[in-house]
Computed example of a mutant assay.
Amino acid sequence: MFYICRESNEEKEREYNLMREEIYRELFLAIQELPDRSREVFELHLQGKKNEEIAEVLAIQAKAVKAYRRDTITFLKSRLGNKFCWFVFMNVI
Results as ranks from 00 to 15, higher is better:
residue 67 A to N: 11
residue 43 E to G: 02
residue 64 A to V: 08
residue 13 E to S: 13
residue 92 V to N: 06
residue 3 Y to Q: 13
residue 68 Y to C: 05
residue 88 V to H: 08
residue 89 F to M: 07
residue 33 E to P: 02
residue 4 I to P: 00
residue 88 V to D: 07
residue 14 R to G: 04
residue 3 Y to P: 04
residue 11 E to W: 08
residue 63 K to P: 01
residue 79 R to E: 12
residue 25 R to A: 11
residue 82 N to S: 14
residue 50 K to M: 14
residue 54 I to C: 02
residue 63 K to A: 07
residue 16 Y to W: 08
residue 7 E to D: 12
residue 59 A to T: 10
residue 56 E to C: 08
residue 24 Y to N: 08
residue 39 R to W: 09
residue 68 Y to M: 03
residue 65 V to P: 04
residue 67 A to R: 12
residue 27 L to T: 00
residue 80 L to H: 01
residue 90 M to A: 15
residue 82 N to T: 05
residue 70 R to C: 10
residue 73 I to Q: 10
residue 28 F to C: 08
residue 50 K to S: 15
residue 35 P to M: 04
residue 80 L to P: 00
residue 63 K to F: 07
residue 6 R to V: 14
residue 51 N to L: 06
residue 31 I to A: 01
residue 78 S to W: 06
residue 61 Q to L: 06
residue 10 E to S: 14
residue 50 K to G: 07
residue 9 N to D: 12
residue 84 F to V: 04
residue 2 F to H: 13
residue 1 M to S: 09
residue 86 W to I: 06
residue 41 V to D: 00
residue 52 E to M: 08
residue 83 K to T: 10
residue 1 M to H: 01
residue 2 F to G: 14
residue 3 Y to L: 09
residue 87 F to V: 04
residue 63 K to Y: 11
residue 23 I to C: 03
residue 1 M to R: 12
residue 93 I to L: 15
residue 36 D to E: 14
residue 51 N to I: 04
residue 3 Y to G: 09
residue 44 L to G: 01
residue 50 K to P: 02
residue 61 Q to R: 11
residue 91 N to Y: 12
residue 15 E to H: 13
residue 73 I to R: 12
residue 1 M to T: 10
residue 88 V to L: 11
residue 26 E to D: 09
residue 13 E to L: 10
residue 85 C to K: 09
residue 18 L to E: 09
residue 10 E to F: 06
residue 30 A to F: 03
residue 88 V to K: 11
residue 78 S to C: 07
residue 7 E to Y: 09
residue 7 E to H: 10
residue 30 A to L: 01
residue 5 C to N: 14
residue 41 V to F: 00
residue 77 K to A: 05
residue 50 K to D: 12
residue 16 Y to S: 08
residue 29 L to D: 12
residue 91 N to G: 05
residue 45 H to R: 15
residue 3 Y to N: 13
residue 18 L to K: 13
residue 14 R to A: 03
residue 21 E to D: 12
residue 23 I to R: 11
residue 56 E to V: 09
residue 71 D to L: 02
residue 82 N to E: 14
residue 70 R to P: 05
